[in-house]
Design a protein around this nucleic acid. Structure first.
Lengths: 341, 341
DNA sequence: GAAAATCACGAAAACGGTTTCGTGTTAATA
DNA sequence: TATTAACACGAAACCGTTTTCGTGATTTTC
């Protein structure tokens, strides 16, 4: 196995100094035509590539960005990630990804692994546990060190940094409004317990739409499940309520509920209509297909990456005060067979 | 913004040499109790963390592994990735991920981005285009440089390296055999054109099962779609064939075909039964639920990561000859409502 | 023909660590 | 008391680059 060739090898072979080689390969005016040609030819011949690590050490930046997400086998997060990766690559950055698995401890460990110079900044969606604990010291530590941080989707007000979110409240409000406009009166909400932000906002929108329409809110129509996996609780819930529509905070809840309704002999959307969040494979391919709220993860990812890289490359002067932005992506309702507006 | 604290800072502050600080922080016997305590306390106070980049430069390894996959919004690849990430983290490695988007050029560019010292090795599934072109020079280049490479799922015989695959032929054979045993006679195959290996192997298994059972192979029952997205061609295909079972090389094909069958008024599984590949959300949540072949991506990822790291950490002596392994993961058929065996 | 300017290149420091090899001081040994 | 061993630490090289500054040789200028 041949090791990677270095400037030193070239210098020794061609009997010039390392500095000359370095300059020649950068086409510096300082070096004569002849020498440059000789060195460049030699470098090409032996397929010389500068060592990234050495360059990183010198420049004090790595052109790596760290992404920490709660789950990777997850449609929304992967679409965001795709957006990040695409944009980052276009600016010459690589992406290191860590999965927190919804665990606070893993999130902390992952950050520590990367915070020692491995990345120029972080893009994160908070773990469920982190949001529950409300402990953000690990984030504070990196931001205080001047490492750029962009939070997306699962964000917190406790940390001052750039953020990208969708208009959860508003879009949930619009969805419920549409349901009401099409004659629905008893609308259930299927949500999660622990992921405060997002679920909370969607619930706010749901409540606002009902109140505004003069429909009294029946707390029995709101089912908050402790985890994504606890869908088995949906069936007994549906047995005990009398409803004509469901808004679910994700695809799986919605699809699962649709399945139960179907087995009960209900007609979709005539007897009961459904709207979910996340425009994934399930929504597109279910029968009937599911009306859903597209979160435009790709766009979120792109924006997040852009915010991060812009900040990473703009060394802020000591005097200047940081000013952070929160970008709001407009989610859109995609109407399919599970609703009739 | 305070920059990261370094050995030099500590040394200057405590009026000792950099070497003393370095040794003290490693608890070297060389340094006196007093000095060690003083230095360690100071380091802890200022939250000193050694700079990873500097360590990488010194040690000539990065503890990063590069993963290049064709698609990230994809159930199978993400499960593999989850396995990789989990195992890699447990051994102190980080994972840099690049998406080739099924493009040969992007695959090459991604490899070049990472091959200059950024990673200790690669784990890859080949892009569709790469398999079509049959051009593997970019892989050859890195292996010849002694950079470890592990190929999974989409592999090639052209490159000598460690590989992880599933028993595609065998499991497709078993699935079709089961269908035949349950009385099916006219079994269609829904496959893809371009991803040679995997689809080819599954087709081989399909053919073998039919032949072995004395069922003549009707080429009209095999539909090879150019891309994953071209599912619209499935409907006309189903109009023109008379079949009682379908084996599909992925979830989407199977689910889409099920939908069409349902709309035609066919009963599943009585009139027609279905088996797909990839045990994702679609299979679990469709109605009826889809019998499917689980590829155990997590396990694949773990094995791939282990093979890679083991090789990366075992500097092979100059004399020794490399010997590569191909690990075969046994896929398993999960029976659900779309079949009745 | 002497002074100044230009050219083409090399030495060395720096990035932030690790590690080998000295070396001056104290403690143990003969 | 002289010799040696142990102790506690520092100097310096090294990993592979980039970059500033210097310098000898050649060319230009007056």
């Amino acid at each position: 196995m041949k090791r990677q060739i270095t400037l030193k090898h070239i210098a020794r072979e061609l009997e010039v100094s390392i500095s000359t080689v370095s300059k020649a390969l950068k086409n510096s005016e300082e070096i004569s035509r002849d020498t440059k040609e000789k060195i460049q030819a030699f470098a090409k011949l032996y397929n010389y590539k500068p060592n990234n690590i050495a360059i990183s050490l010198k420049n004090k930046h790595t052109k790596n960005i760290g992404v920490i997400i709660p789950d990777i086998v997850h449609h929304f997060f992967t679409t965001v990630f795709r957006g990040i990766e695409k944009y980052a690559n276009s600016r010459g950055y690589n992406v290191i990804i860590c999965v927190s698995d919804e665990s606070f401890d893993k999130e902390v460990i992952n950050m520590e692994m990367l915070a020692n110079g491995s990345v120029d900044g972080f893009i994160m969606a908070l773990a469920g546990e982190t949001q529950l604990k409300n402990d953000f010291n690990h984030l504070r530590e990196v931001t205080e060190q001047g490492v750029p941080l962009v939070l997306f989707d699962r964000v917190t007000n406790e940390i001052q940094c750039d953020k990208v979110v969708i208009n959860d409240t508003e879009v949930a409000y619009q969805a419920v409004k549409k349901m009401i406009a099409s004659g629905r009166k008893r609308i259930a909400l299927l949500t999660t317990e622990n992921f405060f932000n997002v679920s909370k906002h969607r619930e706010d929108g749901y409540r606002k739409a009902l109140m505004e329409s003069g429909i009294e809110i029946d707390e029995k129509l709101i089912l908050a499940l402790p985890f994504d996996e606890s869908i088995d609780d949906i069936s007994p819930f549906l047995d005990n309520v009398n409803i004509d529509a469901i808004l679910a905070v994700n695809e799986v809840f919605a699809i699962h509920a649709m399945g139960i309704a179907l087995k009960k002999g209900l007609k979709i959307p005539e007897d009961i209509s459904f709207i979910g969040f996340t425009d994934g494979l399930l929504s597109k391919h279910s029968i009937p297909s599911l009306s859903t709220i597209a979160q435009h993860g790709d766009r979120m990812g792109e924006i997040a990456a852009q915010m991060l890289i812009d900040r990473a490359e703009n060394e802020i002067g000591d005097g200047e005060e940081e000013t952070y932005r929160t970008e709001v992506i407009k989610a859109t309702l995609i109407e399919r067979e599970s609703t009739n507006f």
